[in-house]
């Protein structure tokens, strides 16, 4: 049964408990950062920060300022670009859906870093390998929820069977829309054939720094291969024309 994390941004108060719980459970170091005029810190997901809360200020149609929060981490995509391009097999999928990473197999080629549509996978300069959220396989396989979910005090994060969470999320979206939240929407049901971290958003995905149409990097292998084969044929014919002898007439 596929598992998932549901992030209900309408319930998030930006306490960053999930962010800290993740660091504690995985023993991730703090980052040295500078004040950038926002409570949001550190500035991005990284090799040492696998989950973080993004703080977004928007102005609604009524002219009122709104403070939005999103607890962001690896989406554990069904069409996972990182996993598809990984040449060593260091990235692999758990039977229950998570995209995990075997540090013993990663050789630091960084292809996954460039392939990820969400900017999640990050190279770790210290270890020479990449890092990202693993969805706490040690906890999940012992019957627990990931540490971020267990810590969340408001119920913004929940963990469980993906199907169940999806219907819960749809109910919540309908509820929010009924309350007048026109921007309420679900993110992650169909994107990349389904994410294993799904979101109830109150605005467009872009507002939260998420791509509206995330692309499966490997989808371009076929068209690129076709054009490359055609170009090879053209060059082959070119060489044939160039190197064949023309009836007695020498090449000057």
């Amino acid at each position: 049964m596929a598992k998932a994390i549901l992030v209900d941004t309408s319930k998030c108060i930006g306490c960053r408990g999930c962010q800290v719980a993740c660091k504690q459970w995985h023993g991730l170091q703090a980052e040295s950062t500078r004040f950038e005029g926002t409570y949001e810190n550190p500035p991005d997901l990284s090799a040492r920060t696998w989950r973080k809360v993004r703080f977004i200020e928007t102005v609604g149609e009524d002219g009122r300022l709104r403070w939005r929060f999103i607890s962001d981490a690896c989406k554990h995509c069904t069409d996972a670009s990182c996993l598809a391009v990984c040449p060593t097999g260091a990235l692999f999928r758990r039977p229950w859906g998570a995209v995990d990473l075997d540090q013993e197999l990663c050789n630091g080629c960084r292809y996954c870093v460039a392939a990820c549509p969400f900017g999640v996978v990050t190279f770790n300069e210290e270890t020479g390998r990449v890092d990202k959220c693993l969805m706490c396989p040690d906890r999940v396989e012992a019957g627990l929820a990931p540490s971020c979910v267990t810590t969340c005090p408001t119920g913004a994060l929940s963990f469980g069977d993906r199907d169940q969470l999806l219907s819960q999320a749809k109910k919540r979206v309908a509820e929010l829309q009924a309350k007048g939240e026109k921007g309420a929407q679900l993110y992650g049901e169909r994107e990349l054939s389904g994410l294993h971290q799904i979101f109830v958003l109150q605005e467009r995905p872009q507002v939260y720094g998420q791509p509206e149409q995330p692309q499966f990097a490997v989808a371009s292998v076929f068209p690129s291969s076709v054009t490359s084969v055609l170009a090879s044929v053209v060059m082959g014919v070119a060489a044939l024309v160039a190197f064949r002898e023309r009836g007695g007439k020498g090449e000057e």
């Binding site: 670009s81 391009v85 549509p117 692309q215 490997v218 371009s220 292998v221 291969s225 490359s228």
Partner: peptide
């Protein structure tokens, strides 16, 4: 293939 590889990213 190096060109195809670059295409296969985001």
């Amino acid at each position: 293939y190096t060109g195809v590889l670059l295409g296969t990213t985001n």
